[in-house]
Write a protein that binds this DNA or RNA. Structure first.
Lengths: 121, 121
DNA sequence: GTAAACCTTGGAGTATGCTCCAAGGTCCAG
DNA sequence: CTGGACCTTGGAGCATACTCCAAGGTTTAC
């Protein structure tokens, strides 16, 4: 499929798709007139970019990760090491998020307590 | 305390502290010679910035959040609403992280399975 | 054959979050 | 009273991740 349809399907602009291409994502096949072509695999890649971005990874990090997902078959030891370190990083982020969540929850509880007290006075 | 000591205590550069100040963080009191002064409360703010950044919030978001933590006492309804939406957002991020973690774990398991198979052939 | 709707490139511009000067004022020790 | 370690400002520069042109080629439909 061409860039317009592809961009629409993954929900971003064509400029963004071209930018991701420059970074190194997607298959980069072209027709004779120079038009870019995208496949279903590229849709998966775009979904991975969206997931990665939503959890705070940079495009370069996501690119490295997506290449490991593909190359994993060829270079086990390396891919396993990197995947494990990524999992550890994700676990750390989850722990961080839970800490801040607790902070916000405490503040919320405190707000509610003060409010209840004011009503009873 | 002055900016150098403050920056050292929170573990960032003086440039970064001045930048955070421009964004709107910290008490912004000065001595007669124009030197900035920082308090223990500013240390807490700096810690909040570090936490917020580590979980992917922008400085402006963290600023809004930190102001709600302070103003919460004054404007309950608003603060409660905002804190609740922040908690929801954090829950979503945790869910996203867990999804990507699962993906990475599956890939890791797959890598290991292929490796085991190769060894047995 | 021409208009609309695509596609191409290169380059400029924007926002965020720093980082690094340069030029100069302040403070304290010896 | 001078050197060194502080502090100030303004402005430039950089990386990331887009976003928006301008100028032009291609394809399709009438």
């Amino acid at each position: 499929m061409l860039i317009g349809e592809f961009a629409k399907r993954v929900g971003v602009s064509t400029d963004t798709i071209r930018f991701y291409g420059k970074v190194g994502f997607f298959s980069s096949s072209r027709s004779e007139n120079g038009y870019r072509h995208y496949t279903e695999k590229d849709i998966e890649t775009a979904d991975l970019i969206a997931s990665g971005k939503s959890i705070g990874f940079s495009l370069r990090e996501i690119l490295a990760f997506s290449q490991e997902m593909t190359d994993g078959v060829l270079d086990h030891a390396r891919a396993q090491e990197s995947l494990q370190s990524k999992i550890n990083l994700i676990d750390e982020r989850i722990a961080s998020l839970k800490r801040v969540r607790k902070l916000a929850q405490q503040q919320l509880d405190y707000c509610r307590a003060v409010e209840a007290q004011e009503l009873s006075v």
